[in-house]
């Protein structure tokens, strides 16, 4: 799985939702703007608390009161800060016009802070360090990209999304469960 939290804030109250497969494609879930995202989130399972820093791999918080989107995740964005900056600007200037769009730089901790939740509740100290992977990630984060390379990466994100329109386990399971309920 790619465990994900979605959070909706309305009238100063927040609800936390859970999706099992979305974190690696969460950037692509944001393409369609606030209305589509909220419509997607509402039927998801409600959670009592946020995922912790080990299990959570991405989150999107939609603050309807402040018109603010705070998110992190997506395999294209995880370790590529230059692409994150570009991606955020793309959303602000296209489908999220008028909204504050921000990357949650500390992941679940940033989300918890925004909600006023004690960050200790999301910190998992059992996190294991993988040295080899750590070096790889650091190297990727330090890479500088030309504008053309950033445009290529955004294009790849878009193409990947279009090629996988049928791949949406969360939506698939949702319709399956709906049918199942009807059948009793």
């Amino acid at each position: 799985g790619h465990r994900t939290n979605y959070i909706l804030i309305e009238n100063k109250e927040h609800d936390i939702y859970y999706a099992h497969w979305d974190a690696n494609i969460i950037g692509r879930k944001l393409f369609y703007g606030p209305d589509s995202l909220v419509q997607y989130i509402r039927p998801l399972s409600v959670s009592e608390k946020l995922l912790d820093t080990v299990w959570g791999e991405g989150a999107a918080l939609v603050d309807m009161d402040q018109q603010k989107l705070l998110f992190w995740g997506d395999e294209f964005l995880w370790h590529t800060p230059a692409l994150v900056t570009c991606f955020v600007q793309m959303l602000r200037e296209t489908t999220w016009k008028g909204w504050q769009v921000e990357w949650a730089s500390e992941g679940q901790v940033t989300i918890a802070k925004y909600l006023g939740v004690d960050t200790q509740t999301v910190l998992n100290t059992e996190e294991e360090e993988d040295d080899d992977e750590g070096e790889e990630v650091e190297a990727k984060e330090a890479t500088t990209y030309t504008v053309a390379e950033l445009a290529n990466l955004l294009d790849q994100m878009l193409q990947n999304h279009l090629q996988n329109l049928d791949y949406d386990p969360t939506a698939t399971i949702r319709s399956f469960i709906k049918d199942h309920h009807k059948k009793g």
Binding site: F31, T85, Q89, E93, T94, T95, V147, A151
Partner: peptide, 26 residues
Amino acid sequence: DRHREQVIQQLSTWIADLREGKVSLP
């Protein structure tokens, strides 16, 4: 559907503008 096509078009145009240097990045 139509909304999807519009969104994809919008994003594609933005990416093309970025490629052509029409977008000012911070």
